[in-house]
Amino acid sequence: MRARNLALVLGEVAGGGPLTRAALAELTGLTKTTVSSLVADLLSAGLVAEAPAARAGERGRPGVEVRLSGEHVAALGLEVNVGYLAACVVDLTGTVRARRTVRADNRASRPEPVLAALHRLADETLADVPSLRIAGAVLAVPGTVGEDRVHHAPHLGWRDVRITDLTDPIRVADRPAAVENEANLAALGELEFGSAPRDFLYVSGETGVGAGLVRDGGLLRGATGLAGELGHVVVADGGPACRCGSRGCLEAYAGQDVLPGPAALAADDPGAAAACARAGRALGLALSSAVNLLDPGAIVLGGRYVPLFPWLAPHVRAVLDERLGALRPAPPVLLPAATGPDAAVLGAAARVLRRVLADPASLG
Rank of each mutant, 00 (worst) to 15 (best):
V89W: 09
V89R: 06
V89C: 05
V90W: 11
V90S: 11
V90P: 09
D91K: 07
D91S: 05
D91Y: 07
L92K: 14
T93V: 15
G94Q: 04
G94M: 02
R99Q: 15
R99D: 14
T101I: 12
V102Y: 02
R103G: 05
R103F: 06
R103M: 06
R103D: 09
A104F: 02
A104V: 04
A104R: 15
D105Y: 03
D105K: 08
N106C: 11
N106L: 12
R107I: 05
P111E: 03
E112Q: 15
P113A: 12
P113N: 14
P113D: 10
V114L: 13
L115A: 04
A116R: 06
L118W: 03
L118R: 07
H119C: 09
H119W: 05
R120W: 03
L121A: 13
A122H: 03
D123E: 14
D123M: 09
D123F: 01
E124V: 07
T125V: 10
L126V: 04
D128V: 03
V129G: 02
P130Q: 04
S131E: 13
L132G: 05
L132Y: 06
L132I: 07
I134Y: 06
I134Q: 05
V138T: 13
V138L: 03
L139F: 02
A140Y: 07
P142D: 05
P142T: 07
P142N: 05
G143K: 06
G143S: 05
T144Y: 08
T144I: 13
T144K: 08
V145E: 01
E147K: 09
D148E: 15
V150I: 15
H151S: 15
H151T: 14
H151P: 02
A153D: 09
P154G: 08
H155D: 11
H155Y: 13
G157N: 12
W158D: 01
W158Y: 07
R159S: 13
R159A: 15
D160V: 12
D160C: 08
V161P: 06
V161A: 09
R162D: 10
I163F: 03
I163N: 10
I163R: 11
I163H: 11
D168M: 10
P169N: 04
I170V: 12
R171F: 04
R171T: 14
V172N: 03
A173C: 10
D174G: 03
D174Y: 04
D174K: 09
R175I: 01
P176N: 13
V179F: 04
V179D: 01
N181R: 08
N181Y: 11
E182M: 08
E182G: 00
A183E: 03
A183I: 04
N184V: 07
L185C: 04
A186D: 00
A187F: 01
A187T: 00
L188P: 00
G189E: 07
E192S: 08
E192I: 02
F193S: 04
F193M: 11
F193A: 08
G194E: 03
S195G: 09
A196I: 02
A196F: 03
P197A: 01
R198P: 00
R198L: 11
F200R: 01
